[in-house]
Nucleic acid binder design. Structure first.
Lengths: 202, 202
DNA sequence: CGTCGCATTGATATCGCTCAAATCCGGTGG
DNA sequence: CCACCGGATTTGAGCGATATCAATGCGACG
């Protein structure tokens, strides 16, 4: 662990955390964790590179983030009980596994400002993942549906006070395309458009 | 400030931070900060909603994140000296401005684990912004160029040990499209393809 | 030698973008 | 009350870029 060359972006973890860490080797393509696994560790990448990916309906993979040697990986999973992505080595890699409990403790516990702030940042990261996944979809229809499902919550209702063109910008579409897509969905009965509200049906 | 209804995602900031906070009202479309402004505050949204946006070459706006009442806004700017986005109110809004210095102090200073961990998470958020911006581009050529510029650093060199199809997944393109795009760029002399390396020229 | 995975190339289909125009709607002033 | 205006929505028509499907080349490996 000593004499390890770390890039500028590296996180110098305190020794008391690293002593609790096991290290692990991964081969190219091997998974450190899978979507749905309980979050037990945050990883410090010692060698190689890892990526966090999600698989879409058509099984295409969507890369959420990458971490190289010296960087933390999956640190935003601190906010979750289960991983939301697969963590895959893009090549031969070596990681140190820091138990999340140790990490939380080092932050001063779940009531500390530090922990709560990290949660807030991690939550934003999670939303960005959602955005990323949405923009990764090629069809306008899929983006709109993804947006409605993600933002509409249980009831499938999204309030939108802004103009249609702002929603179009949010989705990375043109005004006209968005309009036509909404019109189609409404004609299919999958959607209701009220004044400043979109309702996903069935 | 009391009796304020906050959603589940809200961040309960300690009183000593909130007492140092000024509050500010914003009208729809008004900017809390602009890209390039020095980072002085982290905002807690009291009412309304803010969005962080970047403008692309064609002046289309790219939404990076949104924060609603009760949530922190621009907390990942803690890692930066200048804002990388515009912070805009999507409607009438009210925010509490917490000085970043106070925030850093509350985290235990710039050497604390808490602060460094927050930085690590914020750094990942920054990269996700870059990804978001890239996927927001419609043309394959633009995505490739954006990737090369962002990942290639000063020298414009990107090492890529994986297969072409993995890079295609990263960029949200199909293998064939990526191949054709790279071939075109190389024919134009803007790019050199070596074994496991891409060089951006001129 | 045959097969497998990936890179490369070609042909075509499809979708969203672009430009253009009609319509709607709230606000304003006569 | 009505005519008019500006901004936004809605609709139409055509084009261009990318996805898709198909085929070939090509090196690694058993």
């Amino acid at each position: 662990m000593k004499d390890l060359l770390m890039p500028a972006a590296s996180v110098a973890l305190p020794a008391e955390l690293l002593t609790q860490a096991e290290t692990l080797r991964l081969a190219r393509g091997e998974a450190l964790f899978r979507q749905g696994d309980p979050v037990r560790y945050v990883a410090l990448v010692l060698e190689g590179e890892l990526k966090a990916v999600r698989y879409m309906l058509d099984s295409a993979e969507c890369v959420m983030l990458r971490a190289r040697a010296g960087e933390l990986f999956a640190e935003s999973s601190l906010a979750d009980s289960r991983y939301r992505c697969d963590g895959i080595a893009t090549g031969p890699a070596r990681v140190a596994l820091v138990p999340v409990e140790a990490m939380r403790a080092a932050l001063g516990g779940v009531d500390s400002l530090a922990y709560r702030l990290c949660l807030a940042v991690a939550r934003q990261a999670r939303r960005q993942c959602s955005r990323l996944e949405r923009l990764r979809l090629k069809r306008a229809r899929d983006r709109v549906l993804h947006f409605l499902v993600c933002e509409g919550g249980e009831a499938g209702i999204v309030r939108w006070s802004g103009h249609l063109s702002e929603l179009a910008a949010e989705l990375g579409l043109e005004r006209e395309t968005l309009y036509r897509t909404l019109a189609t969905l409404e004609a299919e009965g999958r959607l209701r458009r009220l004044d400043d509200e979109l309702r996903l049906l069935a």
